[in-house]
Design a binder for these strands. Structure first.
Lengths: 220, 220
DNA sequence: ATCCTTCAGTGATATTGTCACCCAAACCGA
DNA sequence: TCGGTTTGGGTGACAATATCACTGAAGGAT
C-alpha cells in the first residue's frame, strides 16, 4: 500500500496533485513489525514519520523502578506523533512503542513529510488532528492517574479489553502495566471483583461475568 | 506588537513575504489579561490561536472533586497549543489556562493561522515544535504523578519557584494544586522539611534555607 | 514423573489521600 | 480598637494504594 492509498482510505481525501503523488510513491516505504517487537523507544529513535496501515501499537512509559503505564494505542489509520515530537524537540523521553499485534506501516522521510504538510491542506489538518488527539489522550491519562481510583480504572480497562466471549487473556502484571500500578494491587482488586461475582479468574485469564456490574463501577 | 514582530523577536525568522505580512497585520490582534483571569477553559473555548508576548499562563486540570494539577506553563515566546488542540479535535477537555501574571498576547484567527502555516516553513516548524514540547511536558507529568514520590516532587517545585531571596509567596493549597495532591499532604511534607532545617515557614510564605539539601531530595 | 519458570496470593508495613475537625493569623467593618 | 469573619494551616483517625518479602500453585519442558 502506498501513502497515497493510505490517505485515500483513511482520510477520504481526493487524489493528491500528480507531482506530490509521484514524490510520495518514491519516498514512502512499507515496514512490518511482528507482534511484541519494539517499534520505537529511547534507544531506537526514528527519523521518519509512521502511518499505521494495520495492527495496533501500544505506547507506554516505563519508570526508573520498572513500573509501566500505557499512554495510548495507535490504531490503523492513525499516525504516531510521538516519534515526530521526539524528532522535533530533540529531547530525551522514556516512552516506548510496542507492536501489540503484527503491524504494517508506511514510513515517510522527514523531508517528504515537510513537503506534504506544506502542500496538502488535508494532510496538514490530519497531522494537527493527530497531535491534538494525543494531547487529549494524555490529559485523560493525567486525570486518571492523578485523581482516579484504581478499581474504577481497572473496571474500565476490563470492559475495554474484553472480546465478545467476555474472556481476556492477560496476566495481572499486564493489567498493572496498563494502569501504572503494581501487580499486587491488581490481584487484590480482581479478587474483590471475583468475590462480588463480577468476574472469574484462571491463570492468565479474566472472564467478565457481570458487565453491567463492572460498568456501574467504571462510571462512579 | 504585531505578529510579525513577535516571530522576529522569538523565532529569529527573517521578515515574512510582504503579502503574508500584510494579511497578518490586518488579522492579528493584541489582547491583555490581568493576573488571575481565565484565559481559556471548558466554558471559554477560543476560536483563535494565541502567541504570548509577555507574562505566564498556568495550564492546569481540575478533577471532579475539585483537586487541581498544573500541567505546564506557557511563557513569553510560546504559543498555547492546547487551545489549538481543542479547536481541531472538537472534543471536551477539562484543562484551564489562568494568567499567572499580567499577560499580553497576540491572537490570530484560525484562517490566518492556516495560511501562515502553509506558507511559512519557519512558522510551521515553530508550531510543530510547540506541540512537541507540550507532549513531552505531559509525559513528564504522567511520569511524576504515576511513579514519583511527593516529597521529591515538592522539593523540585520549591526549587523551581524560589526567587533569589529564597522566599516563595504561596499557600499550602497552591502547592498542593501544583502537584495534584491534597493540602494536608503538602502541610505534612513541609513540616518534615522544616524539621530537617531545609525550609522555614510563615503564613503564606515558604523560605528555602538549605537549597543543597532540597536538591538532594529532588534528585532521589 | 521432576524440575523450573511464570503467575498469583498474602501479611506486614510505608506512603499517600480523605474526612472532620481545630486553632490562629490576617482582614474588615463599625 | 474591638469583635467578627475569612483564610491558612495543624492534627488525628482512617481509607486507599504501594512496597517488600515471602509463599505456593499451574503449566511447560526434559
Amino acid at each position: 500500500m502506498t501513502l497515497v492509498d493510505w490517505t485515500a482510505r483513511f482520510q477520504g481525501t481526493a487524489a493528491l496533485p500528480r507531482d506530490v503523488r509521484d514524490r510520495l510513491q518514491r519516498s514512502a516505504q512499507t515496514v512490518r513489525y511482528a507482534a511484541g517487537k519494539s517499534v520505537f523507544g529511547p534507544s531506537n529513535i526514528p527519523d521518519s514519520l509512521m502511518f499505521l496501515v494495520d495492527g495496533t501499537i501500544r505506547v507506554s512509559q516505563t519508570s526508573e523502578n520498572g513500573r509501566d503505564i500505557v499512554l495510548y494505542r495507535v490504531e490503523a489509520g492513525e499516525s504516531c506523533v510521538l516519534t515526530t515530537a521526539c524528532m522535533l524537540a530533540e529531547e530525551a523521553y522514556n516512552a516506548e512503542g510496542i507492536a501489540e499485534t503484527d503491524v504494517t506501516a508506511i514510513i515517510l522521510p522527514r523531508t517528504s513529510f515537510d513537503q506534504l504538510v506544506s502542500e496538502e491542506p488535508a494532510f496538514r489538518s490530519f497531522v494537527f488532528a493527530a497531535y491534538s488527539r494525543r494531547l487529549i489522550d494524555l490529559l485523560r491519562v493525567v486525570d486518571d492517574v492523578a485523581f482516579g481510583r484504581i478499581d474504577v480504572r481497572l473496571a474500565e480497562r476490563l470492559l475495554g479489553l474484553a472480546r465478545d466471549d467476555q474472556d481476556i487473556a492477560t496476566t495481572h502484571q499486564q493489567l498493572a502495566s496498563e494502569l501504572g500500578t503494581a501487580r499486587e494491587v491488581v490481584s487484590r482488586v480482581l479478587q474483590d471483583f471475583a468475590k462480588r461475582g463480577l468476574i472469574s479468574q484462571t491463570r492468565g485469564h479474566v472472564t467478565l461475568t457481570d458487565r453491567a456490574g463492572l460498568r456501574a463501577i467504571a462510571q462512579s
